[in-house]
Computed example of a mutant assay.
Amino acid sequence: MGTDIHCFAEEKVYENEGVNRIGKWVSCDKWTSSWAGVVPDIDEPPIWEVLRKDMVFTDRNYELFAILANQRNSENMPYICDPRGLPEDVSPKIPPQIILIEGHSTTWFTAKELIEYNWDQVFEYEDETMDGEKIMESVNYRECGCRFLDAVNRLVGSKDPSDIRLIITFDN
């Protein structure tokens, strides 16, 4: 069994323009009801979820997980930061889904933080072959994170990267 990443996306929307802009984070994910229209007589509200196929990023890449949140970091690679948990002002639909998928090591980043991170690092470490031979391995952060960064940049588009936030959690 492996570890998977779940990425939720939020955008900061503003109530008014000008100097005194007040922003609120809202989910910009595609939410799907798990039973809407299927069980019309049920009295409980539908369970809303972001299907895996609709998430911003879902690739299993343990080196990237290590960089983002010190997950699966057996080689002690330098990473952006320890998991931050959920932001206090997270969109209300996201925490129940994280609970439902038994997410752990939850963290968040603005797109600006991710774009400005030093992805030009190369981490080298000593490894061992099946025959016991010592070899040097390396992780090129830019190569490792290129598909993730492409997803972040698509999400941002022409918007201000400070107004886009990714909520990231992992499951086992």
Score class of each variant (00 low, 15 high):
Glu116Trp: 09
Arg21His: 12
Asn118His: 01
Ile115Asn: 05
Ala69Gly: 15
Trp35Asn: 13
Asp89His: 06
Ser33Cys: 01
Glu75Gln: 09
Val90Phe: 00
Lys24Arg: 14
Lys24Ile: 12
Ile42Met: 11
Val26Pro: 00
Tyr117Cys: 10
Phe57His: 09
Met55Phe: 06
Ser105Met: 05
Ser105Tyr: 01
Val38Cys: 05
Lys112Asp: 12
Asp29Lys: 04
His104Pro: 04
Leu68Trp: 02
Leu68His: 01
Glu116Ala: 12
Ala9Phe: 01
Lys24Met: 08
Val13Ile: 09
Leu100Asp: 12
Met130Leu: 14
Pro78Leu: 00
Val90Cys: 04
Phe65Thr: 00
Gly132Cys: 00
Val38His: 12
Phe109Gln: 01
Leu100Trp: 07
Asn118Trp: 00
Val38Arg: 10
Met130Tyr: 14
Ser74Gly: 13
Asp89Ile: 01
Ile98Tyr: 02
Arg72Ile: 07
Ile99Phe: 05
Cys28His: 09
Ile98Pro: 02
Pro96Leu: 02
Trp35Leu: 07
Glu124Gln: 15
Ala111Asn: 11
Tyr79Thr: 04
Met77Gln: 11
Pro40Val: 03
Met77Arg: 05
Glu102Gln: 15
Asp41Trp: 09
Ala9Asp: 05
Asn76Cys: 14
Asp131Met: 08
Trp48Asp: 05
Lys30His: 14
Thr32Arg: 07
Ser91Met: 04
Trp48Val: 06
Asp82Met: 10
Cys81Ile: 05
Asp120Pro: 00
Val39His: 08
Lys24Asp: 07
Ser105Gln: 10
Val26Ser: 08
Val26Thr: 13
Leu100Phe: 11
Leu114Thr: 15
Met77Lys: 02
Asn76Tyr: 10
Phe109Thr: 00
Asp43Trp: 06
Arg84Leu: 13
Asp127Lys: 04
Glu17Leu: 12
Ser33Glu: 02
Met130Thr: 15
Gly85Gln: 00
Trp108Asp: 08
Glu10Leu: 08
Glu75Asn: 14
Glu75Phe: 12
Pro92Ser: 15
Lys30Arg: 13
Ile98Ser: 06
His104Gly: 10
Glu75Ser: 08
Thr107Asp: 09
Trp31Lys: 03
Asn70Ile: 05
Pro95Lys: 06
Lys112Arg: 14
Leu100Thr: 15
Gly18Gln: 02
Trp35Arg: 14
Cys81Pro: 01
Tyr117Pro: 01
Ser33Asn: 03
Ile115Phe: 09
Pro83His: 05
Pro45Val: 08
Ala69Ile: 01
Thr129Leu: 00
Asp41Val: 11
Val26Trp: 03
Val26Met: 13
Thr32Gln: 12
Ala36Arg: 10
Asp43Val: 13
Pro40His: 01
Lys12Asn: 07
Ala9Cys: 09
Val90Ile: 13
Glu102Thr: 14
Glu11Val: 13
Glu116His: 14
Ile101Tyr: 03
Gly103Phe: 00
Glu63Asp: 10
Ala69Asp: 07
Asp29Pro: 02
Asn16Val: 12
Thr129Ala: 00
Val122Gln: 08
Gly37Pro: 05
